[in-house]
């Protein structure tokens, strides 16, 4: 087992464990903080995958904005700071069953796929992934359309969110 594998396993267990805490913790603020831990884990996974840009954007967007928003939302939607009543709904066992089934199904499908145990080739020297990514995002031959659609989506979401959450007096 190489060092990289050990690091991966550590990060993976950390990520999964904190992910599990996200969905089971009673205290929602703690759940949001665990989510941040999970997101950090995913950022490290990105870094392990040589996707440095994604890792940094993960931190900026998810932790810097989305997670903070969650914490705000949790604080704004509580009558008091205590957690009352059960945090799971009545059908939680069914949800758990479905989740396990989903994981089992995915695992089963992956087993039958021949590219599963593939290992990564080295990144060619001098390959600038960030530059390539930037080019791909704005090149008409590549992904400028999805990129623009995403920006339109963001604007729409922004306007929609402001409209929905605005306190109409």
């Amino acid at each position: 087992m190489t060092a990289e594998q050990i690091i991966f396993l550590l990060v993976a267990f950390f990520t999964l464990g904190s992910g599990f805490m996200v969905v089971t913790t009673r205290n929602l603020i703690h759940a949001a903080l665990w989510l941040i831990a999970t997101l950090f884990g995913v950022a490290v996974i990105f870094a392990l995958l040589d996707a440095g840009f994604l890792a940094v954007v993960q931190v900026v967007v998810y932790i810097g904005a989305i997670a903070i928003l969650f914490i705000f939302a949790v604080m704004l939607t509580r009558k008091d700071m205590r957690d009352q009543g059960p945090q799971m709904n009545r059908n939680w066992w069914f949800g758990a069953l479905i989740s396990v089934l989903t994981f089992g199904g995915l695992y089963f499908l992956l087993q039958g796929w021949n590219g599963l145990s593939k290992t990564a080739a080295d990144i060619p020297s001098g390959f600038d992934a960030v530059g390539e990514l930037g080019n791909a995002l704005v090149s008409p031959n590549a992904y400028v359309l999805p990129f623009e659609v995403a920006s339109v989506l963001l604007v729409a979401a922004l306007v929609g969110a402001v409209y929905v959450a605005f306190n109409w007096k």
Binding site: N89, N91, F94, G95, I98, L101, T102, G105
Partner: peptide
């Protein structure tokens, strides 16, 4: 209840997919 809808949808998805 939105979560029940989601569960139904997933059950159908899993059954049909399988």
């Amino acid at each position: 209840r939105i979560q029940q809808y989601l569960m139904f949808a997933l059950v159908v998805f899993i059954v049909v997919g399988a």
